[in-house]
Design a protein around this nucleic acid. Structure first.
Lengths: 172, 172
DNA sequence: AATTAAATGATATGCTATAACATGACAAGT
DNA sequence: ACTTGTCATGTTATAGCATATCATTTAATT
């Protein structure tokens, strides 16, 4: 049993979607997972990068780069765009954070540590975002790629629609 | 036959997506399909909208809004961003054009007239884009949405990787 | 012709992202 | 200790993407 497995062993309310969950726990969990992985792989988990991830974990929603930048500035880090973009690029390329292409925004990974090709459900009403899994390379897309000779490296899967809470509001 | 048709009258095959095809035919086909659908549904297929679609069909690749705008300006249309964005919005919302979120760019639909939820293969090397079909709402994403109570309205599916031609280059 | 709705023109502005270059922090080898 | 290399950070400037707003024109409806 690895330490990563140990993190998942407790019961918890979880529900990384549109449901309630133990938020403080998931912030901690995200930070530890990142710290562990960086140690394992010799990545430098510097203070700007830590703070950036912490901000995204705490907000628990998709933030634009400039929103992140504002928070970094408040915490005494540099105040120019590259500061945020660099930290975000590090976090994204190592899987701690995902970019939501549809929103041009960033969100902390909901399943830190697990290998996954994520998919997102984005509410067009309240902009809440839930993460789930997808296997796009199996199925029609994979077939098409194979037929065309296209080599898939990464996939973006984002569903836009209404979250449960906004569906309810729409009905009433 | 207009003079514009005459310019293109030679039958030529150019690279579409990743394959060869009769380019003149597909431009014509795209324009007719749009014209027909607009007539059917009482949509106003105005000259800016026509020209915008024609530009995208002829280029046959993803163009940024400002590239489109430049072309429109050359053809005597307004030169301010909203001119391009409005035409693009019309075309996108009626399915004649798709937005590639990953590139913040627009590409003419490859299967005009057919109902479809498109998926794209984007070459990170040469930025070529091929369109195919996807059924993301079947499969894992659909299950997750159902479980969460999320109502999917639209999906974005984009695969990034290497097109056949760039795979070859990479090997040699 | 009068009314209304839709599309366009034009100005201004805001948001997103990166290029380019200088500085600092740290580790490895001499 | 010092040079060198590498990576991260700071800073300036600019490029690229997108929309709000308001005035004007055009087209369809009555």
């Amino acid at each position: 049993m690895t330490s990563r497995d140990a993190n998942n062993s407790a019961k918890k309310t979880e529900a990384l979607g549109f449901e309630q969950h133990d938020h403080r726990t998931c912030v901690k969990k995200g930070m530890s997972a990142a710290e562990a992985r960086c140690a394992e792989e010799g990545l430098r988990f510097t203070s700007v990068r830590q703070k950036t991830l912490e901000i995204l974990l705490q907000e628990h929603r998709a933030l634009g780069a400039y929103e992140v930048l504002d928070r970094l500035r408040e915490d005494g880090f540099g105040s120019q765009p590259p500061v945020a973009y660099r930290a975000l690029e590090f976090l994204v390329s190592n899987g701690f954070v995902h970019k939501i292409e549809k929103l041009n925004a960033f969100i902390a990974c909901a399943n830190p540590g697990t290998t996954h090709s994520p998919a997102f459900m984005i509410c067009r009403e309240c902009e809440s975002v839930a993460e789930t899994q997808s296997m796009p390379a199996r199925g029609a897309l994979g077939e098409a790629a194979k037929a065309a000779g296209f080599m898939i490296e990464k996939t973006v899967v984002e569903a836009e629609g209404l979250c449960p809470s906004c569906v309810d509001k729409a009905v009433s």
